[in-house]
């Protein structure tokens, strides 16, 4: 395929890769131990020694941002992937088969959606204890019905296309039709959605941590860095600001990647 990938998307892809690498290799990159406390040098803004300053415990914010990326990105990527795997299939079946399958799947996803995402997180965290796993489970469960609904409605549109009837007439099996005709045709919006929901998941992780339910200290995550920073927002805004910036940048990057993938899958509407 001869696809012109825009500058923006190249930047996005590069940035995402860079972020993942930075997070993965943070133990070797980080200037200091992210757990080392030093109350004598706490709450300092950026200095030559601590580029991003120090937090209330005197821990190096740059090192914490780097290490925090491991947790935040892992949750942000893992959770939507898990729920996409399950949700897209369920949605396609519902949309393609209709009838009772549809009703059953749609209603059960409605049921799940009846729990506000964050409250679901609160309940899962209360039951399992707030942790990395709880955050992944909560976010994956929360996103699952959304994948179901989206792929269902996209499938419904495709289902009406004449080539599907033609395939049925040609005697193809359901699985084969769904795989060969439905999936490629709905992949575009789903990939866009996945990119958005990785973004959402990273932000959800932050929101869960803001409520004190995400990955737990002493290991930093961007979300709990914001939470910790919130208590002294006016006095020392730096830790929260850098963590907030890290979230914003990584969400931006993943959105750009989503666009790039979308353009690859769907060259005609691309830039």
């Amino acid at each position: 395929m001869n696809v012109p990938i825009g500058k923006l998307t190249a930047i996005g892809g590069g940035l995402s890769l860079l972020l993942i690498l930075l997070a993965a290799f943070s133990p070797w990159i980080a200037p200091l131990d992210p757990l080392d406390q030093s109350f004598l040098t706490a709450n300092q803004g950026p200095t030559a020694e601590h580029w991003f300053g120090t937090d209330a415990f005197g821990r190096d914010v740059l090192s914490r941002v780097l290490f925090g990326g491991r947790v935040s990105l892992a949750i942000g990527i893992l959770a939507p992937l898990l729920s996409a795997l399950a949700g897209i299939w369920a949605g396609m079946l519902a949309g393609y088969l209709g009838g009772w399958t549809d009703r059953l799947l749609s209603r059960s996803s409605d049921l799940l959606m009846s729990f506000p995402t964050l409250l679901l997180g609160v309940m899962i965290a209360a039951a399992l204890g707030p942790s990395f796993q709880s955050a992944v489970i909560a976010i994956a469960v929360a996103l699952f019905p959304r994948f179901v609904r989206l792929s269902r409605s996209a499938t419904q549109v495709v289902r009406r296309e004449p080539f599907i009837d033609a395939s049925i007439a040609a005697g193809r099996g359901t699985a084969s039709i769904v795989l060969r005709h439905v999936l490629p045709n709905i992949a575009g919006p789903l990939v866009v959605a996945l990119s958005l929901w990785i973004a959402t998941a990273i932000r959800l992780e932050a929101a869960l941590s803001f409520l004190g339910l995400g990955a737990q200290p002493p290991a930093p995550s961007w979300g709990n860095m914001i939470r910790d920073g919130m208590s002294d927002l006016v006095g020392d805004p730096w830790p929260a600001a850098f963590a907030g910036a890290a979230i914003t940048i990584s969400v931006l990057a993943f959105n750009m990647v989503g666009d790039a993938l979308r353009d690859l899958l769907d060259p005609e509407t691309g830039l």
Binding site: L8, L196, A199, R203, A206, A207, F210, I226, M230, L233, A240, G244, I247, T248, I249, V251, L252, N255, M256, D259, T269, L271
Partner: peptide
């Protein structure tokens, strides 16, 4: 699409989508 409005719109969406909402609220 591909024009200036598109670029602006997509930039807006990216920013809107990238800020953690509660932090933006703060």
């Amino acid at each position: 699409r591909g024009g200036k409005i598109d670029a602006f719109g997509r930039f807006f969406a990216l920013i809107g989508f990238s800020l953690p909402d509660f932090y933006f609220g703060v």
